[in-house]
């Protein structure tokens, strides 16, 4: 290992410009990937916030026995899909309507609005099919007059989320693929710059694993350094966008950021393994 580290440090010192270029190439490739990740993260967060508004409203018939409604609330709350159930009295409904809709400003008689149950679903259960199924079950209670959940809106939201997810996956794979190719090519330049050394190592009887190890360490170190640089650039870009455009955006959590840096190292390692492996096969 001592020899490996010495060879890595020698390689860095011998070709500092190539090393800096490699790190920068890795950094910019990962930065592009990181920016895409930030956009994907914020779109996903925004959709999640919108999704949280998915709710089922069951209107309670006038004169419904309060015991039956209370029992139903407990019953509905125990559905596996349901996060919470609230009873909205006519007074609460009116207060909300007056707050949200101008035309209710002059209405003071709460009796015009029916009481209702407001049912919110757990994350993962907000797709149109589940929402419809829960709504159908709620409808079966005898005191329920009508059930509304904005079927069309839920369907549209679901479609947008699917399109965003699929686009994110495809673009993510494409960006990651481009990053691996660019990083692999950069490391290939390092391998070619040291081709003479590799041929001498092989002639004197070094094993392929021995030849490969310094390149793997080199690729991993460059990947990690590039990953850290990319993270710093992504953070600066995030702050700039946050401050200049005033968008309430989200940055990667520390776990995801660390994972990104480690991914940089792994991509560097894989790029090195592929490049040096190909070189060893060719010579």
């Amino acid at each position: 290992m001592r020899l490996t580290l010495r060879e890595v440090s020698l390689g860095l010192r011998r070709a500092p410009l190539l090393s800096v270029l490699s790190v920068l190439t890795i950094a910019f490739s990962l930065f592009a990937f990181g920016l895409f990740g930030l956009v994907a993260l914020n779109v996903s967060e925004a959709l999640k916030r919108v999704e949280e508004r998915v709710e089922i409203r069951a209107f309670i018939a006038d004169g419904a026995p309060i015991e039956a409604v209370s029992a139903a609330v407990g019953d509905i709350a125990s559905f596996p899909e349901v996060a919470r159930v609230d009873i909205i009295t006519p007074e609460q409904a009116l207060a909300r309507a007056r707050k949200e809709m101008g035309e209710f400003q002059d209405v003071f008689d709460a009796a015009v609005l029916p009481a209702s149950l407001e049912i919110r679903l757990k994350p993962g259960y907000r797709d149109p099919r589940t929402v419809r199924a829960v709504a159908e079950r709620v409808k079966t209670y005898s005191f329920v007059d009508d059930v509304r959940y904005g079927e069309e809106w839920v369907q549209k939201l679901y479609n947008i989320r699917n399109i965003a997810g699929a686009t994110g996956l495809v673009l993510g794979i494409a960006f990651a693929g481009v990053a691996v190719i660019i990083i692999g090519s950069t490391i290939r330049m390092t391998v070619l710059a040291r081709a003479r050394e590799i041929s001498i190592m092989r002639l004197v009887g070094a094993t392929d694993a021995f030849v490969r190890l310094p390149f793997l360490v080199d690729g991993f170190v460059k990947g990690v350094v590039g990953g850290l640089l990319a993270l710093a650039m992504a953070w600066i870009a995030y702050r700039l966008i946050d401050q200049t455009l005033g968008i309430d955006s989200t940055f990667f959590q520390s776990g995801s950021a660390a994972l990104g840096v480690v991914a940089g190292g792994v991509i560097g390692l894989l790029g090195s393994a592929l490049s040096v492996g190909r070189h060893l096969r060719d010579v």
Binding site: R202, L203, V204, G205
Partner: peptide
């Protein structure tokens, strides 16, 4: 290869290492 010695017309020495280091390198890698 460890049981053979190989010498070429173009010497194939590492230019940035001294004579000692070139020889030591072969010992280190084996």
């Amino acid at each position: 290869r460890r049981r053979l010695g190989i010498v070429f017309q173009d010497f194939r020495l590492l230019e940035d290492r001294t004579a000692e280091q070139n020889i030591a390198f072969a010992l280190e890698v084996t």
